[in-house]
Write a protein that binds this DNA or RNA. Structure first.
Lengths: 186, 186
DNA sequence: TATTTATCTAAGCAATTGCTTAGTATTGAA
DNA sequence: TTCAATACTAAGCAATTGCTTAGATAAATA
């Protein structure tokens, strides 16, 4: 009966996600979204309700995509702490576009979603997920007790966020120094 | 000849700075500014040219204020690395308002000023300044050679930025774990 | 083929954005 | 006191924001 959608929601959300990642939430207008997503405003609102709806789906898409691109491997890796270090470096490359680092969409967004509990929860949940992977890997070192693992996992997520923001204003060398130094401590 | 200004530019800029710090650049409208600064739009534009002008002055005010509030002491301290650690903790308290951490105005802004070289320079310059203070303090340890000092200074500025962003979404405990771990072997 | 149901185009809505302008008030020198 | 120079008030500007609506188009069932 109904007419067919001329677009895949997943495909247009991926494009929306990149737009938000590149420009930030507030700086991305619905006009920009319709251009980048390749569909018009009616379709955007019909599929995702409002701009916040597009953003929420974009956050979720980012999480899913990042997980499959990198975190899954990390989770299954057996190189211990060294694999976490590799993740830090790989993420930087992953976030690169036209020679500049875009940082992490989630970390970038924290400053723009002031008070929106849904977005905050979406972001915090992913941080917890990464932290759990770090804990699992840290635990493969039998010399570390539970308390130390907890501490070091907290250490690593904050460090990861540091890399993410710092990558937007510092150079490769300073980032490398940081990452190397971070893992001296583990 | 001229009529006197009924406000001090420094005073209204301080209020503007807090508004930007609390809400972010894009989320702060000129209407909000005129309300918070206590002067009307004409005066804002007469004194600071445009919204970007207010923001630039706010960034500069933030830098100056933070320097006199904390960095000056750090620069003159003789406690070595321990004083840097104290700075990490003190900054967190300094950034607190109504029970939540506001992060660092400069770090928060990085994501919103995409491509504006003036703002980027303003921010990067301050990072360099802090880095130099870190280097100076690290150098008081005679066991560290120049290369190590360089590396550890890079390590510390990225770590500081990590604390700043992470404070906006993680809890006190995780932040403490991070800071403690950062300074374990410096 | 006719009808139903949903998708599309494109025009337009009120509200908000950053900014300007016309007119009035206040100051201090001539 | 007069007058030029600046600061103020308040209204309003065009452009952009997020979002809606009316009407045309397409698809699958009856």
């Amino acid at each position: 009966m109904p007419r067919k959608k001329s677009y895949s929601e997943d495909e247009v959300i991926e494009k929306a996600m990149y737009t938000f990642w590149k420009n930030g939430y507030k700086a991305t207008s619905v006009r920009m979204l319709e251009k980048e997503m390749g569909i018009n405003q009616f379709s955007i609102y019909a599929s995702f309700k409002d701009k916040d709806g597009v953003f929420l789906k974009s956050l979720q898409f980012y999480k899913k995509k990042l997980y499959h691109a990198m975190l899954e491997d990390l989770n299954n890796s057996e190189n211990g702490v060294e694999s976490i270090k590799k993740y830090f470096y790989d993420f930087l490359e992953y976030s690169k576009e036209n020679g500049t680092y875009k940082g992490c969409l989630l970390t970038n967004s924290v400053n723009e979603i002031e008070g929106n509990e849904i977005f905050i929860a979406e972001i915090a949940q992913f941080a917890t997920r990464i932290r759990n992977i770090f804990k699992k890997i840290l635990a493969t070192d039998k010399n570390k007790n539970e308390q130390l693992i907890e501490k070091q996992a907290n250490y690593l997520i904050v460090a990861l966020q540091g890399v993410s923001v710092a990558s937007r204003m510092l150079g490769k060398e300073q980032l490398n120094d940081f990452i190397e130094e971070v893992f001296v401590n583990l």
